[in-house]
Each structure stands twice: as structure tokens, then as C-alpha cells.
Amino acid sequence: MSVTAALAERPPPRARGWPRSRVIGYAMVGFWILFGLGIVAYLIFAWNADFFAKYAPAYLKGLQTTLLLVCISMVLGAILSVPVAYGRMSSNRILSGLAYCYVYFFRGTPLLVQTYLVYYGLGSFRAELQTVGLWDFFKDAFNCGVFAFALNTAAYQAEILRGAIESVPRGQWEGAASLGLHKLQTLRKIILPQALIVALRPYGNELILMVKASAIVAIITVYDLMGQAKLAFANSFDIQAYIWVALVYLVMVEILRHGVEWIERRITIHLKR
């Protein structure tokens, strides 16, 4: 949908020449072009074959770690979000209260704090964790990152799931019930297909947020993309370490964003008129 079409035509017909908005607009675009050229010029000027040879493989490895971390956490979070969403929608007071607290805690505190709590916090309960046999898992920083991220994203995904299911009108449940479908069948065959269309965009946003948030694990000794950048910067004191990594993240997020939009266009084709 075009933005302009939805808005009022201003009383004076569209100005030719140079109205104020066009001057500002051109100035802003000019600023961005200058900015972009500045970055490119800097990267060319500061081009350092040694730097590239030394750190490019490390960045690739970091990228792998980042993608692996995000994928595992998203999938685990999705699995965990089902019981949480169920609890949130349950009429059982205790169940819904527990689910509410879970969601509130993980959405109300910074992911960085949660990650610290898991990695450094649980580190001080080694003896207790060892007796229940969980220490081997928490020994590894990557596992700790996945654990914290999965718990966090489960809270967000549970809310997405709940919102999507609740967005399906009640009549759909009633209709299915009158056809003799039981609840689980209704959910699977009638409700979820409709809910997932609604949920696609929020899920996409959550995925993008996770990709961005994954930079946090660099702080708990995991060498993800950001971790490699930090290391490269600390060894070379060269700001291009961060500029390269910023470009990689930007490209990654843009691909995801356009990918989600493309999928959304495909699966809502039947809704278009």
C-alpha cells in the first residue's frame, strides 16, 4: 500500500520546484549518501590486507556460531512457548498465574541480565548442579547462552502465539464444535492455520530481534560474530573491526526482513482482492 494514497491531498496542488519539504528531503538524502560514501571511503582508505586475511576467517566462524545460536534458541523457545501460551490462556488460576509470572519476568528484565544470571550466576552453584548432573551442560558458555536465549524468546513467542490464537474469532471454535471436531482437532485444523498467518510477522520480528540480541553472548566468552569483532578490535584498535561487523548484521537483518515479507505476501495471496 502506498503511503501517499492513504493520506490527504493538501489543498495547494502538489508543488513543483522546491518546496521546503523537498529541500529538507534532498538535504537528508544527501547526508545519507555522504555518510555512506564516507564509510566506503574509510574502508578503502583503511583497507588492510593483513587485517582481512587475519580476521575474515574468524568472522566467518563467528557468523556460524551466531546463526547456530539463534536457530537452536528459536526452536527450543518455540517448543517451550507452547506450554507457556497454554498456561496463559488456561482458566486455572494457578497455571495462568505461573505463566504470567514467567512471561513478566523474562519480558521485564534485560536479556543481558538474564544471560549474566545464567552464566556467572549459575557458575556459583556448581556443587548443587553437579549433584543433579546438570553441570556438564552449564559448563559451556555456548550452552548457557542458548539456555538464557531460549527461556527469553519462549516468553515472547508465547505471547505471540497467544495473541494469534485469540485473534481467531470465537465463531470458528463454535463452528468446528458444531461439526463435531474435538478441541485438539479444531486447534490443529482450523485455528492454527489462521493464527499462523497473523503470527508470521511477529515471529519474523522476534527472529530479527534474536539475531540482534545474540551479540550479547560475546560478553560471556562465546566467540560469535560480535565476539570476533571485539577480539579483532581489541587486538588492532581498528574501528573497521566494528564497521565490518555492523555491515554483516545489517545485511543479515535485511535479508530476514525481506524474506518474511515475501513469505507473508505468498501465504496471504488468497486474502487479496
Binding site: 557458575g123 556448581r126 559448563k139 558458555a141 560478553i219 566468552t221
Partner: peptide, 18 residues
């Protein structure tokens, strides 16, 4: 070789067996 932001963190992780 694992890099830590400062010495106390590496010491804590030595003490807890990481």
C-alpha cells in the same frame, strides 16, 4: 584458549571448574 573480559571472571570459572 578462552578470552575473558577481566581476571576475576577467569578466576571464578577456574574455581567452578569451567
Amino acid at each position: 584458549v578462552k578470552g575473558y573480559p577481566s581476571s576475576p571472571e577467569e578466576q571464578a570459572d577456574l574455581a567452578n571448574g569451567r
